[in-house]
Amino acid sequence: MTKAVVTVMLKQGVLDPQGKAIGHALHGLGFEGVGEVRMGKRIELELAEADPAKARALAEDMARKLLANTVIESFKVEVA
């Protein structure tokens, strides 16, 4: 079994109002050195595929078909 982690983020240039709101809240708490904040999703997958390269290809296929909307989001797959 292989574990794959898919990280989905809004693409650069796509407005991320949640990230902005988090940034404002951090400033409100006194964390003044905070620049841009962006928020995304982390999806952990348990895959029956034992081969890491094949597991990565599978997770990428899943990301393209469902986990990310590539109109607005980019994704990154890590295989442990």
Binding site: V14, L15, P17, Q18, A21
Partner: peptide, 9 residues
């Protein structure tokens, strides 16, 4: 296209 979170949240 896509529908994003409202700009004002």
């Amino acid at each position: 296209g896509a529908l994003l979170r409202n700009a004002g949240l």
